[in-house]
């Protein structure tokens, strides 16, 4: 007959769970433990892709500094011979670059304001409330994203004319906000879904109305998603060309992409101005990204609940 000690199934001492945990911990592999050969490969791949990403930008930068007679040179020097800031100076003095920038900033900021405002509230409703048409509404929003913007141009054009806002800031703002909103709403809804409901329930018991719960608890916690939404809608408006080209005729309403396109004429392309303009257009976006990146932290709800 087997003795109790020899058969582990017959004696079950307390502490099975601790043993179980110890085994689990040992089985988890540190993701940084890779062999040196694998490391080399990882770096090669990363470097290649980084070069792919950086090369065009460096090229544009170089061209923007070249003197007028060397624009089409194939020289790869970062700072070309006889580098000059002429193109930049021309942009600000001989061309209405500042006006374009003002238009772009104005339109983009207003689009951002409305997108964040509407997406943060609409996303909350989609996430938290049950109402007729909620699911079909979400699907409709995604469906709008399936059409290429060129298909929407004609209806947009007709609609804005009928609304009497063709060739105006308002027309552009409506068009951009409408394009950016569906994605922003999905984005916000997805984020709200990750905020535990018990926080809101707790707030309601603590004495918040539903509006207060949203403002004092949910909105501050949604910060990372709000920042992404803001960046996304800003970029939608900032770098858009096609819609603007159709909806705006008045030169005083031109946004930056439209202005830059103007450097391409039938006879020649002012590559120097074009490149200098391109560098300046990307600058605010880069600054915006750097400024907002510290809010893009995940795990903001860390420590609030334990699931």
């Amino acid at each position: 007959m087997e003795t109790a000690e020899l058969n582990p199934k017959t004696i079950r001492p307390n502490g099975v769970s601790t043993n179980g945990r110890a085994v689990k911990a040992a089985a988890v592999k540190n993701p940084r433990d890779v062999s040196p050969a694998a490391k080399v490969w990882i770096y090669i791949v990363l470097t290649l892709f980084s070069l792919f990403a950086i090369f065009p930008i460096l090229q544009v930068f170089t061209i923007s500094l070249r003197p007028g007679d060397k624009l089409l040179s194939t020289n790869l020097e970062l700072i070309p011979d006889g580098a000059t800031l002429d193109a930049y100076v021309t942009l600000f003095t001989a061309r209405p670059f500042l006006k374009w920038m003002f238009n772009s900033v104005l339109v983009s900021l207003i689009v951002t304001f409305f997108s964040v405002g509407l997406a943060s509230t609409a996303g909350y409703a989609f996430s938290r409330y049950k109402f007729y048409g909620r699911d079909s509404g979400m699907i409709l929003l995604i469906a709008t994203q399936m059409f290429p913007v060129t298909m929407l141009l004609l209806p947009l054009f007709i609609m804005l004319i009928k609304l009497g806002v063709y060739d105006s800031y308002i027309g552009l703002i409506i068009a951009y906000t409408a394009t950016a909103l569906p994605f922003c709403i999905w984005q916000m809804k997805g984020f709200y879904d990750t905020i535990p409901r018990s926080l809101e329930e707790s707030a309601r018991i603590d004495g918040c109305s539903e509006v207060q719960t949203f403002w004092k608890i949910v909105f501050p916690l949604a910060q990372p998603a709000l920042v992404i939404t803001a960046l996304f809608s800003f970029m939608t408006a900032w770098s858009e060309y096609l819609v603007a080209a159709v909806l705006v005729q008045d030169q005083s309403l031109f946004t930056l992409p439209m202005g830059l396109k103007g450097f391409q004429s039938d006879l020649e392309v002012s590559w120097g101005l074009y490149s200098a303009g391109a560098m300046l257009v990307s600058l605010p976006v880069v600054i915006l990204f750097i400024a907002l990146s510290r809010y893009l932290v995940s795990g903001l709800t860390l420590g609030s609940v334990k699931e």
Binding site: P196, S198, S202, R204, K306
Partner: peptide
């Protein structure tokens, strides 16, 4: 009556502390 007017307090399983 809405929760805030019932004069009750509740402790949740997951604590539900306001993280900010």
């Amino acid at each position: 009556v809405s929760p805030k007017d019932r004069d009750i307090a509740m402790v949740f399983q997951n604590y539900a502390l306001y993280p900010h």
